[in-house]
Amino acid sequence: MRIRVDGAKCQGNARCWALAPDMFELNDEGYMEEAVIDVPDGDQEKASRAVRACPERALTLIDD
């Protein structure tokens, strides 16, 4: 499982970071940059909650 981050859509709500601070690395402005994040085994549930938490719909789950 991976998460695609649409950097252009991120507005720094940081709800993903609030739910899973180890999975989402904010830049100095507090925003996510364009990225594809590998979800560690066992963290799938946390990852999908973080994706659902984004008010901007900037995160997409890729179910490999």
């Binding site: 507005q11 720094g12 709500n13 709800r15 909650r49 659902r52 938490a53 984004c54 008010p55 901007e56």
Partner: peptide
Amino acid sequence: REDNRHVAFAYGVHR
């Protein structure tokens, strides 16, 4: 409540 994607702080560039 979980999955609480509220908009109290607005959306978009002016969040």
